[in-house]
């Protein structure tokens, strides 16, 4: 269970998040919805340690954790941010081998499995520029999953995609819930998409 308690974030004098608390039970999917500029990305960036909140505490299964330093959370960015100079496989294996010092062979084996599950078999040795947007996103998901996170965060996973691919993404997210028991936070401004995937919907309102 992920708990965020009393999260407040200001940019200069501008209040973006005010005393916000959320709870996400294990295996569940929380959709964070709201209009553009409401602070959805900021909320996600606080949870993933990319912004420092002015106030707020974070707990995983009752134990407090530091968003900037934990191995609980994986992130799938809105623009994916794959490393363009590395192949698909290198993108995935880089962190597990360099950070966790896992043997390359094992990481590769797991990566192959996940790539195949997501229909990316045969793409291991090509570079990100050779992938479509949807494929990039799936590689970004596999890259995040390769670090074995407990929580996976997505910022606007449908915004850069062809509308026809929306259901594909929903299927992947729901699939990860089922097969991996992944707790997932999904920021979106697409209400239909949110209703499709979420166990719980958190509405973020613009404050100023």
């Amino acid at each position: 269970m992920l708990e965020v308690k009393n999260l407040t974030k200001k940019f200069e004098d501008r209040l973006v998040l005010n005393d916000l608390s959320i709870t996400v039970p294990d295996d569940e999917i929380l959709a964070i919805v709201g209009p553009s500029g409401a602070g959805k990305t900021t909320l996600l960036r606080c949870i993933t340690g990319l912004e420092t909140p002015n106030q707020g505490e974070f707990f995983w299964n009752g134990k407090q954790f530091d968003p900037k330093n934990n191995d609980l959370i994986g992130v799938v960015f809105q623009d994916y941010q794959l490393f363009p100079n590395l192949t698909v496989m290198q993108n995935i294996t880089l962190a597990p081998t360099m950070v966790k010092k896992e043997p390359l062979k094992e990481v590769k084996k797991r990566a192959e499995q996940m790539l195949t599950q997501l229909g990316l078999q045969g793409k291991e040795d090509i570079y990100p520029f050779q992938l479509s947007g949807g494929q990039k996103q799936r590689v970004a998901i596999v890259r995040a999953m390769a670090m074995n996170p407990k929580i996976l965060c997505y910022d606007e996973p449908t915004s850069a995609l062809d509308p026809a691919l929306r259901d594909e993404v929903a299927k992947i997210i729901l699939g990860l819930k089922q097969s991996e028991g992944m707790t997932q936070l999904v920021v979106t401004h697409d209400m239909d998409f949110a209703k499709n995937i979420a166990d719980q919907i958190e509405r973020v309102k613009a404050l100023s």
Binding site: D79, Q81, R143
Partner: peptide, 15 residues
């Protein structure tokens, strides 16, 4: 975004 991507994967600065 490349630095942030590396950061959430816990790569060190030199890495």
């Amino acid at each position: 975004g490349q630095f942030e991507s590396a950061k959430v994967l816990h790569l060190s600065y030199p890495q």
